[in-house]
Protein backbone atom coordinates (compact mmCIF):
# COMPACT_ATOMS: atom_id res chain seq x y z
CA UNK A 1 0.00 0.00 0.00
CA UNK A 2 2.66 2.49 -0.99
CA UNK A 3 1.37 4.09 -4.15
CA UNK A 4 0.07 7.62 -4.05
CA UNK A 5 -3.44 6.49 -4.93
CA UNK A 6 -3.45 3.97 -2.11
CA UNK A 7 -2.11 6.55 0.28
CA UNK A 8 -4.81 9.05 -0.63
CA UNK A 9 -7.53 6.44 -0.33
CA UNK A 10 -6.22 5.35 3.05
CA UNK A 11 -5.94 8.88 4.40
CA UNK A 12 -9.35 9.89 3.12
CA UNK A 13 -10.92 6.90 4.85
CA UNK A 14 -9.51 8.16 8.15
CA UNK A 15 -10.29 11.82 7.68
CA UNK A 16 -13.42 12.06 9.78
CA UNK A 17 -12.16 9.67 12.43
CA UNK A 18 -8.99 11.61 13.18
CA UNK A 19 -10.94 14.85 13.08
CA UNK A 20 -13.38 13.59 15.70
CA UNK A 21 -10.58 12.13 17.80
CA UNK A 22 -8.67 15.41 17.75
CA UNK A 23 -11.85 17.34 18.48
CA UNK A 24 -12.66 15.11 21.45
CA UNK A 25 -9.37 16.19 22.96
CA UNK A 26 -8.98 19.79 21.87
CA UNK A 27 -12.73 20.59 21.93
CA UNK A 28 -12.39 23.10 19.13
CA UNK A 29 -13.49 22.64 15.49
CA UNK A 30 -10.85 24.86 13.88
CA UNK A 31 -8.06 23.44 16.00
CA UNK A 32 -9.14 19.92 15.12
CA UNK A 33 -9.05 20.75 11.39
CA UNK A 34 -5.55 22.20 11.79
CA UNK A 35 -4.46 19.05 13.51
CA UNK A 36 -5.82 16.95 10.64
CA UNK A 37 -3.85 19.01 8.11
CA UNK A 38 -0.70 18.75 10.16
CA UNK A 39 -1.31 15.06 10.64
CA UNK A 40 -1.69 14.34 6.92
CA UNK A 41 1.64 16.00 6.18
CA UNK A 42 3.29 13.87 8.81
CA UNK A 43 1.59 10.73 7.57
CA UNK A 44 2.83 11.45 4.05
CA UNK A 45 6.39 11.86 5.25
CA UNK A 46 6.18 8.65 7.29
CA UNK A 47 3.99 6.78 4.80
CA UNK A 48 6.30 3.80 4.50
CA UNK A 49 6.27 3.29 8.24
CA UNK A 50 2.57 3.98 8.59
CA UNK A 51 1.31 1.86 5.75
CA UNK A 52 3.40 -1.15 6.63
CA UNK A 53 2.35 -1.06 10.26
CA UNK A 54 0.27 -3.96 11.53
CA UNK A 55 -2.48 -1.53 12.54
CA UNK A 56 -2.12 1.46 10.23
CA UNK A 57 -5.42 3.02 11.31
CA UNK A 58 -4.44 2.82 14.95
CA UNK A 59 -0.99 4.19 14.12
CA UNK A 60 -2.46 7.26 12.44
CA UNK A 61 -4.97 7.73 15.25
CA UNK A 62 -2.10 7.58 17.70
CA UNK A 63 -0.35 10.33 15.75
CA UNK A 64 -3.54 12.41 15.79
CA UNK A 65 -3.98 11.81 19.47
CA UNK A 66 -0.44 12.89 20.27
CA UNK A 67 -0.72 15.99 18.10
CA UNK A 68 -3.93 16.99 19.83
CA UNK A 69 -2.45 16.38 23.26
CA UNK A 70 0.64 18.42 22.39
CA UNK A 71 -1.45 21.29 21.10
CA UNK A 72 -3.71 21.16 24.07
CA UNK A 73 -0.79 21.30 26.46
CA UNK A 74 0.89 24.03 24.48
CA UNK A 75 -2.16 26.21 24.81
CA UNK A 76 -2.58 25.26 28.42
CA UNK A 77 -6.11 24.21 27.89
CA UNK A 78 -6.65 22.35 31.08
CA UNK A 79 -9.68 20.15 31.18
CA UNK A 80 -10.98 22.18 34.06
CA UNK A 81 -12.55 24.48 31.49
CA UNK A 82 -15.00 21.71 30.70
CA UNK A 83 -17.86 22.74 32.92
CA UNK A 84 -20.66 20.26 32.82
CA UNK A 85 -22.80 22.47 35.01
CA UNK A 86 -22.77 25.11 32.33
CA UNK A 87 -24.81 23.05 29.92
CA UNK A 88 -27.08 21.39 32.38
CA UNK A 89 -30.53 22.13 33.73
CA UNK A 90 -31.78 25.62 33.33
CA UNK A 91 -32.65 27.80 36.25
CA UNK A 92 -36.23 26.64 36.35
CA UNK A 93 -35.23 23.00 36.40
CA UNK A 94 -36.22 22.23 32.85
CA UNK A 95 -33.98 19.76 31.15
CA UNK A 96 -33.07 20.04 27.52
CA UNK A 97 -33.20 16.60 26.07
CA UNK A 98 -32.63 17.09 22.39
CA UNK A 99 -30.35 14.55 20.82
CA UNK A 100 -27.86 17.22 19.83
CA UNK A 101 -27.65 18.58 23.34
CA UNK A 102 -27.26 15.09 24.72
CA UNK A 103 -24.48 14.39 22.27
CA UNK A 104 -22.78 17.63 23.22
CA UNK A 105 -23.11 16.76 26.87
CA UNK A 106 -21.77 13.25 26.35
CA UNK A 107 -18.84 14.66 24.40
CA UNK A 108 -18.00 16.92 27.30
CA UNK A 109 -18.29 14.10 29.77
CA UNK A 110 -15.95 11.99 27.65
CA UNK A 111 -13.52 14.89 27.33
CA UNK A 112 -13.38 15.09 31.11
CA UNK A 113 -12.24 11.48 31.47
CA UNK A 114 -8.61 10.42 32.04
CA UNK A 115 -6.67 10.13 28.79
CA UNK A 116 -6.78 6.35 28.27
CA UNK A 117 -10.45 6.12 29.22
CA UNK A 118 -11.29 8.97 26.88
CA UNK A 119 -9.48 7.42 23.93
CA UNK A 120 -10.87 3.97 24.66
CA UNK A 121 -14.52 5.01 24.77
CA UNK A 122 -14.23 7.35 21.80
CA UNK A 123 -12.45 4.87 19.54
CA UNK A 124 -14.76 2.03 20.51
CA UNK A 125 -18.21 3.56 20.92
CA UNK A 126 -17.95 6.41 18.41
CA UNK A 127 -15.52 5.01 15.85
CA UNK A 128 -16.21 1.30 16.27
CA UNK A 129 -12.59 0.16 16.43
CA UNK A 130 -11.60 -3.33 17.52
CA UNK A 131 -10.07 -3.72 20.98
CA UNK A 132 -6.74 -4.81 19.51
CA UNK A 133 -6.55 -1.68 17.39
CA UNK A 134 -7.21 0.51 20.41
CA UNK A 135 -4.55 -1.44 22.29
CA UNK A 136 -2.10 -0.62 19.50
CA UNK A 137 -3.17 3.02 19.61
CA UNK A 138 -2.73 3.27 23.37
CA UNK A 139 0.33 1.03 23.38
CA UNK A 140 -1.08 -1.25 26.04
CA UNK A 141 -2.60 -4.73 26.19
CA UNK A 142 -6.20 -5.58 25.38
CA UNK A 143 -7.11 -6.27 29.01
CA UNK A 144 -6.03 -2.74 29.87
CA UNK A 145 -8.19 -1.37 27.07
CA UNK A 146 -11.23 -3.28 28.32
CA UNK A 147 -10.61 -2.04 31.85
CA UNK A 148 -10.35 1.58 30.71
CA UNK A 149 -13.37 1.13 28.49
CA UNK A 150 -15.40 -0.26 31.37
CA UNK A 151 -14.43 2.57 33.68
CA UNK A 152 -15.15 5.17 31.04
CA UNK A 153 -18.60 3.82 30.24
CA UNK A 154 -19.54 3.52 33.89
CA UNK A 155 -18.26 7.01 34.61
CA UNK A 156 -20.27 8.55 31.78
CA UNK A 157 -23.39 6.63 32.77
CA UNK A 158 -23.10 7.66 36.42
CA UNK A 159 -22.67 11.31 35.55
CA UNK A 160 -25.61 11.18 33.17
CA UNK A 161 -27.82 9.59 35.84
CA UNK A 162 -26.77 12.24 38.34
CA UNK A 163 -27.55 15.02 35.91
CA UNK A 164 -30.88 13.45 34.94
CA UNK A 165 -31.88 13.10 38.60
CA UNK A 166 -30.83 16.67 39.20
CA UNK A 167 -32.97 17.79 36.31
CA UNK A 168 -36.21 16.23 37.58
CA UNK A 169 -35.87 17.39 41.16
Amino acid sequence: MKTEAQYIEFVNSLHDTVYRLARSIIMDDAEAEDIVQDLFERVWRARDTVLTNQYPRAYVCRMAHNLAIDRQRAKQRAQSFICVDGVMPTADGEHETTTKDMASLTRRLIAGLPEKQRVAIHMRDVEGYEIEEIAALLECDEASVRMNLSRARKSVREQLIKLMNYGVK
Binding site: R20, T99, K100, M102, A103, L105, T106, R107, D125, V126, R153, V156, R157, L160, M164
Partner: peptide
Amino acid sequence: MMFASFDTL
Protein backbone atom coordinates in the same frame (compact mmCIF):
# COMPACT_ATOMS: atom_id res chain seq x y z
CA MET B 1 -28.86 8.43 25.92
CA MET B 2 -25.30 7.22 25.63
CA PHE B 3 -25.97 5.17 22.50
CA ALA B 4 -27.99 8.00 20.94
CA SER B 5 -25.13 10.40 21.67
CA PHE B 6 -22.57 8.08 20.12
CA ASP B 7 -24.65 7.93 16.93
CA THR B 8 -24.75 11.72 16.79
CA LEU B 9 -21.05 12.11 17.52
